[in-house]
């Protein structure tokens, strides 16, 4: 992924996360030494693709705590009341808004069409392969590292 695309992704995603979820993203070029990326944990994976003028697909790997807190902020529900279905739906909608906004910049003539986003729980997932992947963008948040792997053609 080239640097100019990474920059547009960061600016776009930061706007979406701050405006909708009051969550701040800090771009990372490498995983901090304190992070145990080899350890498996619970994640929510949200996937979305587009086709038409441009083709692409993006996978958002939300650490469980980040996905849960985004949902709590978005829906205004209490920690103990939030359900997995709400967390998955919010993650899917986040991917939809983030990539929809990104396409608005990358495809201003609107020739590409977004597919319906999907989200699911990953129970024992270790992001070690993602952290070394050249197509992955990493963002530090208050609730762990958000990994976004994608391609845009």
């Amino acid at each position: 992924m080239d640097e100019s695309l990474r920059q547009v992704i960061f600016e776009t995603f930061s706007d979406v996360f701050e405006k909708m979820f009051f969550t701040f993203l800090e771009p990372l070029s490498a995983v901090p030494a304190s992070e145990q990326v080899g350890d498996a944990g619970k994640f929510i994976l949200a996937e979305i693709s587009y086709s038409g003028g441009n083709n692409g697909n993006f996978c958002f790997y939300f650490p469980w705590e980040l996905a849960k807190n985004i949902t709590i902020n978005f829906l205004g529900v209490e920690d103990e009341d939030v359900k997995l279905s709400q967390i998955a739906d919010t993650a899917a909608e986040t991917a939809n808004m983030a990539i929809g906004s990104l396409l608005g910049k990358l495809d201003p003539k609107g020739q590409s069409s977004l597919a319906i986003p999907k989200a699911r729980e990953l129970v024992d997932f270790a992001p070690v392969s993602l952290s070394a992947d050249a197509e992955t963008c990493m963002f530090n948040t208050e609730f762990g590292i958000l990994y976004v792997k994608g391609r845009h053609e």
Partner: peptide, 21 residues
Amino acid sequence: SSDARMDEAKKLGVAGYVKKP
């Protein structure tokens, strides 16, 4: 939010438009 999509919506009589986020 593309101009093309919004032009199509206007022709069809959309009353308003809010962009997410």
